[in-house]
Design a protein around this nucleic acid. Sequence first.
DNA 1: GCAAGGTC
Length: 913
Amino acid sequence: MSGGGRTINVLNVAEKPSVAKAVAGILSRNQGLRVRDGRSRYNKIFEFNYSIRGQSCHMLMTSVTGHLMELEFDERYRKWHSCDPADLYRAPVRKSVPEDKKDIKRTLEEEARRCQWLVLWLDCDREGENIAFEVIEVCRAVNRNLVIRRARFSALIDREIHQAVQNLVDPNEWFADAVDARQEIDLRIGASFTRFQTMLLKDKFHIDSATDDRNLVLSYGPCQFPTLGFVVERYWEIQAHEPEEFWTINCSHKSDEGIATFNWMRGHLFDYTCAVLIYEMCVQEPTATVTKVRQQEKLKYPPYPLSTIELEKRASRYFRMSSEHTMKVAEDLYQAGFISYPRTETDGFSNKTDLHAIVQEQQGHPVWGSYAQRLLDPGAGLWRNPSSGGHDDKAHPPIHPTKFSSGESGWSQDHHRLYELVVRHFLACVSQPAVGAETVVEIDIAAELFSASGRVILSKNYLDVYRFESWGGSMIPTYLDGQQFIPTTLTLDSGVTRPPPLLSESDLLSCMDKAGIGTDATMHDHIKKLLDRFYATKDANTRFSPTNLGEALVMGYDDMGYELWKPNLRSMMENDMKEVSVGNKSKADVLSTCLQQMKACFLDARLKKVKLLEAMGIFFERSGGEEQQVAGEVVRQCGMCRESNMVLRKNRDGNYMVGCLAYPQCRNAVWLPGSVSEAAVTTNACNSCTPGPVFLIQFKFRQHEIPPSFNANHLGCIGGCDETLRQLIEICGTGSRVPGRGRGPTVQSGNGQQSNFRQRACIYCQQMGHSSSDCPSQVSGSRNVRSNGMNPQSGELSIQCTTCGTPCVLRTANTANNRGRKFYSCSSQECNFFVWEDDVNNGTRGRSMPHAGVSGSASNTSRRGGRGRGGQNRGRDTDTTFVSATGDPISGRRCYGCGDPSHFANACPNRGT
DNA sequence: GCAAGGTC
């Protein structure tokens, strides 16, 4: 590229109009820069003169808008019924410019014809490189002699851009190949599975989620399905959660200076006897000795500079904005010039960025302007060069304000919020961390260690401007090493492990980010797709639950033994792409291996399609009558329609029922106790029930869910004669918290009424009529319930605690003996008052030493199980302070189960094994 | 009517 006398025409192409404009501005130094329209209204053409290594150039700078081309199947494979979906693994595909990009293509062709060079300014990532080759293909087709060069830049900063143009390189074909492979694999897998499952399931079931199921598409994609998988997996985890009781010792000490709460350094124990032994040792020698007083300075650092994912996560957490909406609003702000490019992985500023200038712009703001002024005042010592999170997409800086605004008239509330977030986040990044003084005090009681901590914030620094974050501070009294005292309270408390919460949008983004599902620019699309396809729903707290459809699809593939809904497939593809992009594997090899495997997987999945049908059958009615329903074992002829048989079925939660095969025409159903773990129809018929024969069912109950007086194995009859079964249904309920085929307290087969079909029961208390997010039993600790008279959660009458006068909260018991029974408990943490709801109705005044499971707050400690549909989620749990001892003799010693002081719970005669 | 990836 040596200098020459003749001026050449150079066509420069950027990935988006904003980059074309920025590069043209930098290279021309805004001298002699002319702008004209191209054929596309968005993609202007900038013209200026420039010299590249002595070569005088007339520069034409224009842009595309992302990919110029799309990959498509050949015409004859595009219709859904044109071929077997399996053929899509070898059907010819081709790249072409779609209709809405034709005008950009024409601009490129026209300009390329009169140029000698083509310089590619696409983003410096794999997709950018691939777009570069699309541009090359279009331009070369009209000008075979073009010299093709690539500009590599890491930011739109003067020096970078001038350096890039003076050091042009060759485009990287490996990068582009990796994207070609990705595109082809995505297309073939996506189209084949989508067509297969849509055509298989759509017409066979009444899928009620869609308003018009003619347009229903049950799509499958290598990103959307793992995203759905995260949602379903968490949902299953919650359902499978089996609460486990644990024990912990708590200690508090009140002095003139205040109260210190000491936590047991063992955390908690699951072994009751062991906990009691230790507790008794402590109570017998309750003198506490201070063994350690540690004071240290703690720093809380401001967040890293803002990347797209962080913007989405924070907007979701702080404002409950969906990621999709956040990106729309951010795009608006970007287009109007108020913030920088919103799709960036970069979370560190280049040291060439003039950070002070960005802060200076904000000095006039009525709210945070004074903070910006303080930042710029060297005397204030507030400034700190921002740290970096270590991610760099080499194309864009972190999201930051680019223009001052104190709010524009056309902005919505969300525009204001998002701009404020971007500005405050930026100001926080260049600020000193908050400083706190933390005190940790450790004490020893009978050789058991406890600790308490307190924190005082010394300087808020960045927290002054970053109002979205807080740093809790609490004072504790002063203690001296070696000091001794008698605790004010020393209690043995029980708690129960709780399931994790549903995934929030922020959690979901983190899962995707971690597993490499999607990119910063597409993650919100995948989340939205789940909602659009009726695979998942989002509640007011931005938490996701799968719909019946979403759960059924994942369950179907899971039952096949495939992990098509897990992120592994995408990770493997990502690894292969990486290999292609560094030249370790060829595009052809990766394509052929991957597609061969996926085709085998597809064919096998099709062989096992009955799994998908079965899974769908659990959630949806069959439509039409052409196919026999998935049959169960016949128990008797239906006494209601007298035409079909009643069969034993297990629903998706692992709960059993006996339902009429003529459903939905006949809705007769018998719901079986929730404690049934196994059931099988025998060949023995009942002697008394008519019309016969009514075949007996061999039941196996989960022993810990039934009273000790009942046997775990039971040969029972659903015809109405079986007193044991009747009692167990009364005690345990039918256990069906899912929308089965009608949910009624029926044991007689004559009155099965379809009433709540598809209504989802609350996952915590298993009641219908509210969702899990509104569950009255979830008012943990309930210190926010202050109304007298009405319980705001349930709308039921509330009562006042007769001990301390605080309002009580209506909750649901969870113990083996009283599961489902309602009680009021005092909402004050200090008070143990409780009274059964039915006792209130009978005029009982309540008491203060309850059975297990009635006061305090639950712990999030969770022993997570794997997937389990039949899981016994006993609901969010309750704790009991059943002994309160210090200062008192050990008279608090009593059974937590029945309250009897003569024994401990492990020896309680009422306790199940 | 299908994917995911760019972008307006």
